[in-house]
Amino acid sequence: MELVTPGFGLLFWQTVTFLIVLFLLGKFAWKPIMSALSEREASIENALSAAEKAKLEMQALKADNEKLLAEARMERDKILTEATEAANSIVESSKQKANEEGARMIAGAREAIENEKRAAITEVKNMAASLSLEIAEQILRKELSDKTAQQTLAQDYIREVTLN
């Protein structure tokens, strides 16, 4: 049948043309297209993996930062507590010292007052003694001049003494 009988001319032209097309397209079209496609795919893959890597790095960096921050915080807290403790102990010790000093001063003052008091009492005693002596002298003198007067005087003194 005509339809399924390959024509010689067409066989020839088809073979020649197809082989030329295959060669030319293969060399000047498919080769650059395929290489560009695989190149692009490789670059996309690289970019993606690089992004993934960067993400991981960022995460590691963030974790590091957080660790550092936590450490710094802990350090700060430690320093703060230490400083507070130190300040407290200083205040405490100075308070104690002041108290002790105050107590000591008060004790000193008391002792001085006691001494003064004692000295004053001794003086008063001495003065009273000397006054008694002087009174006794004057009485003795008056006794010598007037006996009644002496008696009255003595009675007066005595009265005075009893009134007191």
Partner: peptide, 9 residues
């Protein structure tokens, strides 16, 4: 749709 062409291919 020509047998010669498909034959060559």
């Amino acid at each position: 749709g020509n047998i010669a062409v498909t034959l060559v291919l």
